[in-house]
Amino acid sequence: MLPFKLQKKEPLNLLLLGAHCDDIEIGAGGTLLKLLQEYQIGKVKWVVFTSDETRKQEALESAGKFLSGVKEKEITVLSNRDGFLPTQTVQVKEHFEEIKKAFVPDLIFTHYRNDRHQDHRLVSDLTWNTWRNHLILEYEIPKYDGDLGIPNFYVTLEEDILKKRNQILMDAFVSQQSKHWFDENTFSALPRLRGMESASLFAEAFYARKVVL
């Protein structure tokens, strides 16, 4: 499933970065579940950069369910203001540097750099600014802006994995269920499209900006 230096016997250390409380799950949740099934996992560090108290509890619940089988994990949900992350660049960058000092990931998931949401773009930019010698996969978030691009890295998903991802999203993020886009149809639509593009039923797609052999 994973190329090059990640095809190794040692456990993988994973870093998952999301601007908002449900971003990681929507963009890379299926791939994460597949990695947990197919690879030895060392440590997983899961970081969300914006939240309020309600959303923080939902995010902790969701991350806990995704990582239920992981022995060594760290889930961090910060309280920066949603939609205003670029105004808090200094403290966000400082947190990135704290992660870098304490953790060496084999694989990093972050936002797509051409995402039209300002919080997403900042997290993506700081990811590349902070880690220079790592495999970084940028995930995509479907939204009103219509900013989906042309990904170049696909992870095929079995239907049971997609259903598990969707069920955790629906169960954990109760506060979001009044939004017109927050339903299983949305969460399955993009994986079905990316599945068609990768000659499979379902897939999550990513942007691998740089891969070094």
Rank of each mutant, 00 (worst) to 15 (best):
F49T: 01
G69M: 04
G64Q: 07
V77Q: 07
K100R: 15
R81T: 15
Q40F: 10
E94W: 03
K34T: 06
V44Y: 01
H134R: 15
E159T: 15
K164C: 03
L35D: 04
Q37A: 11
G146S: 06
I141Q: 02
Y154I: 10
E94A: 13
E98W: 12
E61P: 00
N114F: 14
L157C: 06
L35T: 03
T87F: 15
F109S: 04
F66M: 05
T89K: 15
L122F: 00
T89P: 01
H95A: 07
L137F: 08
K101Q: 13
L148A: 08
W131L: 10
I75R: 06
W131R: 08
Y154D: 08
R165D: 04
K34L: 09
V123F: 02
D147W: 09
E98Y: 14
E58G: 06
F84T: 10
L78Q: 08
Y39T: 02
N114T: 12
Q40R: 14
E61D: 13
H111Q: 05
L122D: 00
K71M: 10
L137T: 07
E61H: 08
Y144P: 13
L169A: 07
F84I: 09
G42D: 07
I168K: 00
W131H: 09
I136N: 02
P86C: 08
L78E: 04
R121C: 06
F109P: 01
V90K: 13
L107V: 11
V155K: 03
Q57V: 13
W46S: 05
F84N: 11
I108N: 00
D145M: 13
Q118Y: 08
D115C: 07
G83R: 06
H95M: 10
V155A: 04
H134V: 11
N166T: 09
Y144F: 14
D119C: 04
K56W: 04
D52I: 12
E138W: 04
E72P: 01
R121Q: 15
F103L: 09
I141A: 04
Y39C: 07
G64A: 08
G64F: 07
N152I: 05
D119E: 02
K71G: 14
D171S: 12
Y39H: 09
I41Q: 05
L85P: 05
V47F: 06
T76D: 09
K164R: 14
I141M: 11
E159H: 13
A63G: 04
M170F: 11
Q37W: 05
D119N: 05
G64W: 03
V90P: 00
R132S: 13
L78W: 05
T50L: 05
I168S: 01
K163N: 14
R116E: 13
T110P: 00
D52V: 13
R113H: 12
G149S: 11
N114H: 14
E158V: 04
S68L: 11
L60H: 03
G83M: 06
Y112R: 02
I99V: 15
I141F: 02
I150N: 13
Y112P: 00
K164P: 00
I75V: 15
L35P: 02
Q91T: 13
G83Q: 03
F103Q: 10
